[in-house]
Amino acid sequence: MSIALTTAGLSKNYGALQVTRAVDFSLPVGARHALIGPNGAGKTTFINLLTGTVPATSGSITLLGEDITGQRPDQRVKRGLARTFQVTSLFPELTPMQSVTLAVCERLGLTARWYKRTGEHRAALDEAAEILARLHLGHVGHLLTRTLPYGQQRIVEVAVALALRPRVLLLDEPAAGIPSGESAELFEVIAELPEDISLLFIEHDMHLVSRFASRVTVLVAGGILAEGTPAEIMANPEVRTVYLGNSEGHA
């Protein structure tokens, strides 16, 4: 089984505060991997370290065999690493069609081109429309993103990330803020993603985790507490004490 993404001794300190402690983690190609842990465990920081939004204090990150530790976020994206944000981070005054087109254009290296209208880049437009259709957003593609219901905005998050054709996709609580009934719907969309995309997602709801993840890593106080199949993790007494008390608040 080949490895898509690994970290070795990845750490992040803010002064004396250690928010990520020597994390050794690896994500196989095609993985459906969940990252869980109580609030403040450093899950989002871990994602931020992987994408380069936050620079690591020490340790290394390897993406598809290449050391990306020192690279800027946009350089990592070019090498196949995409993410979504826990708090919706979209383009409020652009439409989903424009947002996804933008991501496609970036992947195709068109965003410095000013002498041809976007409308003339047929391939990019068709691809964007295809992605929206695949995620059931075709009918709202022309509306301003800020006018969409929150649940649809969460799916636009995924659509923008997918337009980058990532090899590794990091989803930071993709269903955050969606009523629990609708979050399964979002995960159905995620489950339909191509199998060669390696997926790491943060999620609190253990039902969703056990349904959609094949492996789970538990992060506590910035370090890995346990790793295994959802069943193993649910049975782990240490995890139960640290995590399950917390999960009731989120269910």
């Binding site: 409020p92 087109t101 933008l102 410095a112 923008v160």
Partner: peptide
């Protein structure tokens, strides 16, 4: 032309959300 181009769209993206632009791989 500039405004209607992918570059123009990129500028609007930068106005709306520079953080997200970096996250889609744009050298902002």
């Amino acid at each position: 032309r500039v405004i209607d181009s992918p570059f123009g769209l990129t500028l609007e993206g930068l106005r709306e959300n520079p953080k997200r632009m970096a996250a889609i791989g744009t050298p902002t």
